[in-house]
Protein backbone atom coordinates (compact mmCIF):
# COMPACT_ATOMS: atom_id res chain seq x y z
CA UNK A 1 0.00 0.00 0.00
CA UNK A 2 1.59 3.25 -1.13
CA UNK A 3 0.69 6.49 0.57
CA UNK A 4 1.25 10.14 -0.26
CA UNK A 5 1.97 12.12 2.91
CA UNK A 6 1.71 15.90 2.53
CA UNK A 7 2.91 17.79 5.61
CA UNK A 8 5.10 20.88 5.71
CA UNK A 9 6.41 20.38 9.24
CA UNK A 10 9.55 18.34 8.62
CA UNK A 11 9.77 16.71 12.06
CA UNK A 12 6.16 15.55 11.93
CA UNK A 13 6.48 14.35 8.32
CA UNK A 14 9.58 12.32 9.06
CA UNK A 15 8.31 10.72 12.23
CA UNK A 16 4.94 9.92 10.65
CA UNK A 17 6.72 8.44 7.60
CA UNK A 18 8.81 6.24 9.87
CA UNK A 19 5.78 5.06 11.83
CA UNK A 20 3.80 4.34 8.68
CA UNK A 21 6.71 2.45 7.12
CA UNK A 22 7.01 0.44 10.32
CA UNK A 23 3.39 -0.48 9.76
CA UNK A 24 4.09 -1.78 6.29
CA UNK A 25 3.15 1.20 4.15
CA UNK A 26 5.28 2.65 1.37
CA UNK A 27 5.32 6.41 1.90
CA UNK A 28 6.20 9.32 -0.41
CA UNK A 29 6.44 12.60 1.46
CA UNK A 30 5.71 16.07 0.07
CA UNK A 31 6.57 19.28 1.94
CA UNK A 32 4.37 21.69 0.01
CA UNK A 33 1.23 21.82 -2.08
CA UNK A 34 2.93 22.06 -5.45
CA UNK A 35 5.05 18.98 -4.86
CA UNK A 36 1.94 17.17 -3.58
CA UNK A 37 0.00 17.91 -6.78
CA UNK A 38 2.98 16.82 -8.89
CA UNK A 39 3.39 13.49 -7.05
CA UNK A 40 -0.36 12.79 -7.00
CA UNK A 41 -0.55 13.26 -10.77
CA UNK A 42 2.64 11.34 -11.58
CA UNK A 43 2.16 8.28 -9.38
CA UNK A 44 -0.65 5.94 -8.53
CA UNK A 45 -1.35 6.09 -4.79
CA UNK A 46 -3.64 4.03 -2.63
CA UNK A 47 -4.26 6.87 -0.19
CA UNK A 48 -3.27 10.46 0.56
CA UNK A 49 -2.76 12.11 3.93
CA UNK A 50 -2.96 15.87 3.38
CA UNK A 51 -2.44 18.66 5.88
CA UNK A 52 -4.67 21.69 5.27
CA UNK A 53 -2.14 24.38 6.20
CA UNK A 54 0.52 24.16 3.50
CA UNK A 55 2.91 26.68 1.99
CA UNK A 56 2.55 27.80 -1.69
CA UNK A 57 -0.68 25.94 -2.44
CA UNK A 58 -2.97 25.31 0.52
CA UNK A 59 -4.34 21.90 1.37
CA UNK A 60 -7.91 22.57 0.22
CA UNK A 61 -6.64 23.57 -3.23
CA UNK A 62 -4.39 20.51 -3.35
CA UNK A 63 -7.35 18.22 -2.60
CA UNK A 64 -9.57 19.97 -5.14
CA UNK A 65 -6.87 19.84 -7.83
CA UNK A 66 -6.19 16.16 -7.22
CA UNK A 67 -9.91 15.40 -7.52
CA UNK A 68 -10.22 17.56 -10.65
CA UNK A 69 -7.43 15.51 -12.21
CA UNK A 70 -9.64 12.48 -11.74
CA UNK A 71 -7.65 10.86 -8.92
CA UNK A 72 -10.07 8.84 -6.81
CA UNK A 73 -7.78 7.50 -4.05
CA UNK A 74 -9.10 8.17 -0.52
CA UNK A 75 -7.77 11.27 1.26
CA UNK A 76 -7.33 11.68 4.99
CA UNK A 77 -7.36 15.37 5.93
CA UNK A 78 -5.07 16.60 8.70
CA UNK A 79 -6.17 19.81 10.36
CA UNK A 80 -4.44 21.80 13.06
CA UNK A 81 -7.25 24.21 13.78
CA UNK A 82 -9.89 21.64 14.64
CA UNK A 83 -12.75 24.02 13.80
CA UNK A 84 -15.76 22.33 12.28
CA UNK A 85 -15.79 24.73 9.37
CA UNK A 86 -12.26 23.62 8.41
CA UNK A 87 -13.13 19.94 8.70
CA UNK A 88 -16.33 20.31 6.68
CA UNK A 89 -14.55 22.33 3.99
CA UNK A 90 -11.77 19.73 3.80
CA UNK A 91 -14.27 16.93 3.23
CA UNK A 92 -16.37 19.07 0.92
CA UNK A 93 -13.29 19.68 -1.25
CA UNK A 94 -12.87 15.94 -1.73
CA UNK A 95 -11.43 14.56 1.50
CA UNK A 96 -12.87 11.35 2.92
CA UNK A 97 -12.08 11.63 6.61
CA UNK A 98 -10.20 13.94 8.95
CA UNK A 99 -7.88 13.76 11.93
CA UNK A 100 -7.30 16.83 14.10
CA UNK A 101 -3.80 17.64 15.30
CA UNK A 102 -2.27 16.67 17.65
CA UNK A 103 -3.31 13.12 16.80
CA UNK A 104 -2.31 9.75 18.13
CA UNK A 105 -0.70 7.39 15.67
CA UNK A 106 -3.24 4.67 16.51
CA UNK A 107 -6.06 6.92 15.41
CA UNK A 108 -4.38 7.73 12.10
CA UNK A 109 -3.67 4.03 11.47
CA UNK A 110 -7.26 3.07 12.29
CA UNK A 111 -8.63 5.67 9.89
CA UNK A 112 -6.17 4.68 7.13
CA UNK A 113 -7.29 1.10 7.55
CA UNK A 114 -10.95 1.96 7.30
CA UNK A 115 -10.43 4.21 4.26
CA UNK A 116 -8.35 1.59 2.43
CA UNK A 117 -10.86 -1.14 3.19
CA UNK A 118 -13.71 1.03 1.95
CA UNK A 119 -11.84 1.93 -1.22
CA UNK A 120 -11.32 -1.82 -1.78
CA UNK A 121 -15.11 -2.13 -1.74
CA UNK A 122 -15.43 -3.81 1.65
CA UNK A 123 -17.99 -2.31 3.98
CA UNK A 124 -17.17 -4.37 7.05
CA UNK A 125 -13.78 -4.59 8.77
CA UNK A 126 -14.02 -8.41 8.68
CA UNK A 127 -13.34 -9.94 5.26
CA UNK A 128 -14.30 -13.57 4.74
CA UNK A 129 -12.90 -15.61 1.86
CA UNK A 130 -14.13 -19.14 2.59
CA UNK A 131 -11.63 -20.67 5.00
CA UNK A 132 -9.66 -17.43 5.13
CA UNK A 133 -10.65 -14.52 7.42
CA UNK A 134 -9.05 -11.10 7.54
CA UNK A 135 -9.78 -8.74 10.41
CA UNK A 136 -8.65 -5.38 9.05
CA UNK A 137 -9.16 -3.66 12.41
CA UNK A 138 -6.89 -6.08 14.25
CA UNK A 139 -4.75 -6.67 11.13
CA UNK A 140 -5.11 -10.38 11.69
CA UNK A 141 -5.32 -13.20 9.11
CA UNK A 142 -6.79 -16.58 10.03
CA UNK A 143 -7.10 -19.72 7.96
CA UNK A 144 -9.57 -22.25 9.33
CA UNK A 145 -9.53 -20.35 12.60
CA UNK A 146 -5.76 -20.45 12.91
CA UNK A 147 -3.88 -17.13 13.05
CA UNK A 148 -1.00 -16.67 10.64
CA UNK A 149 1.92 -14.43 11.49
CA UNK A 150 2.75 -11.80 8.88
CA UNK A 151 5.13 -8.89 8.93
CA UNK A 152 3.39 -5.54 8.50
CA UNK A 153 4.76 -5.32 4.96
CA UNK A 154 3.55 -8.80 4.01
CA UNK A 155 0.13 -8.02 5.43
CA UNK A 156 -0.12 -4.81 3.34
CA UNK A 157 0.92 -6.71 0.20
CA UNK A 158 -1.68 -9.40 0.83
CA UNK A 159 -4.32 -6.72 1.48
CA UNK A 160 -3.45 -5.02 -1.80
CA UNK A 161 -4.07 -8.27 -3.69
CA UNK A 162 -7.22 -8.99 -1.65
CA UNK A 163 -8.67 -5.55 -2.43
CA UNK A 164 -8.28 -6.44 -6.11
CA UNK A 165 -9.51 -10.01 -5.80
CA UNK A 166 -10.33 -11.60 -9.14
CA UNK A 167 -8.20 -9.02 -11.01
CA UNK A 168 -4.73 -9.54 -12.38
CA UNK A 169 -2.15 -7.32 -10.66
CA UNK A 170 1.08 -6.88 -12.63
CA UNK A 171 4.52 -7.04 -11.05
CA UNK A 172 5.04 -3.39 -11.93
CA UNK A 173 1.81 -2.36 -10.27
CA UNK A 174 2.67 -4.41 -7.21
CA UNK A 175 6.14 -2.86 -7.03
CA UNK A 176 4.71 0.61 -7.40
CA UNK A 177 2.16 0.14 -4.66
CA UNK A 178 4.37 -1.68 -2.19
CA UNK A 179 7.51 0.41 -2.37
CA UNK A 180 8.10 4.14 -2.30
CA UNK A 181 9.71 6.03 -5.16
CA UNK A 182 13.26 5.54 -3.90
CA UNK A 183 13.03 1.76 -4.15
CA UNK A 184 15.43 -0.01 -6.52
CA UNK A 185 13.04 -2.02 -8.70
CA UNK A 186 13.94 -5.61 -9.39
CA UNK A 187 11.20 -8.02 -10.38
CA UNK A 188 12.96 -10.94 -8.66
CA UNK A 189 12.19 -9.38 -5.31
CA UNK A 190 8.45 -9.55 -6.03
CA UNK A 191 8.66 -13.19 -7.12
CA UNK A 192 10.50 -14.20 -3.98
CA UNK A 193 8.08 -12.16 -1.91
CA UNK A 194 4.94 -13.74 -3.44
CA UNK A 195 6.54 -17.16 -2.88
CA UNK A 196 6.89 -16.33 0.80
CA UNK A 197 3.25 -15.19 1.03
CA UNK A 198 2.05 -18.41 -0.62
CA UNK A 199 4.15 -20.51 1.76
CA UNK A 200 2.63 -18.79 4.80
CA UNK A 201 -0.94 -18.81 3.52
CA UNK A 202 -1.02 -22.27 2.01
CA UNK A 203 1.85 -24.51 3.13
CA UNK A 204 0.01 -27.66 1.93
CA UNK A 205 -0.92 -26.25 -1.54
CA UNK A 206 -4.62 -27.02 -0.93
CA UNK A 207 -6.07 -23.50 -1.15
CA UNK A 208 -4.02 -21.82 -3.91
CA UNK A 209 -5.15 -18.28 -2.94
CA UNK A 210 -2.69 -16.50 -5.25
CA UNK A 211 -2.27 -17.69 -8.81
CA UNK A 212 0.34 -16.63 -11.36
CA UNK A 213 -1.10 -15.41 -14.66
CA UNK A 214 1.74 -16.07 -17.06
CA UNK A 215 3.30 -12.95 -18.50
CA UNK A 216 0.76 -10.67 -16.79
CA UNK A 217 1.09 -10.94 -13.03
CA UNK A 218 -0.71 -12.33 -10.00
CA UNK A 219 -4.30 -12.77 -8.97
CA UNK A 220 -5.99 -13.36 -5.60
CA UNK A 221 -8.48 -16.07 -6.50
CA UNK A 222 -10.58 -16.61 -3.38
CA UNK A 223 -14.11 -15.23 -3.59
CA UNK A 224 -15.61 -13.25 -0.71
CA UNK A 225 -18.12 -15.52 1.00
CA UNK A 226 -20.33 -12.88 2.57
CA UNK A 227 -19.83 -9.56 0.86
CA UNK A 228 -21.24 -7.13 3.41
Amino acid sequence: MRLLLVEDEQALRESLTQQLQKNGYAVDGAADGREAIYLATEYDYDLGIIDLGLPQVDGLTVIRTIREKGKRFPILVLTARGRWQDKVEGLDAGGDDYVAKPFQLEEVLARLNALLRRSGGFASPRLNFGPMQIDTAAQEVKINGEAIEFTAFEYKALLYLVHRHGQVVSKTELTEHLYDQDFDRDSNVIEVFIGRLRKKLDPEHTLNPISTVRGRGYRFDLEPSDPA
Partner: peptide, 11 residues
Protein backbone atom coordinates in the same frame (compact mmCIF):
# COMPACT_ATOMS: atom_id res chain seq x y z
CA UNK B 1 -22.20 18.85 7.23
CA UNK B 2 -24.44 15.90 6.48
CA UNK B 3 -22.20 15.04 3.51
CA UNK B 4 -19.20 15.23 5.86
CA UNK B 5 -20.74 13.05 8.54
CA UNK B 6 -21.93 10.54 5.95
CA UNK B 7 -18.25 10.07 5.05
CA UNK B 8 -16.93 10.11 8.62
CA UNK B 9 -19.57 7.68 9.93
CA UNK B 10 -19.61 5.57 6.77
CA UNK B 11 -19.01 2.32 8.62
Amino acid sequence: MIATFAKVYFD
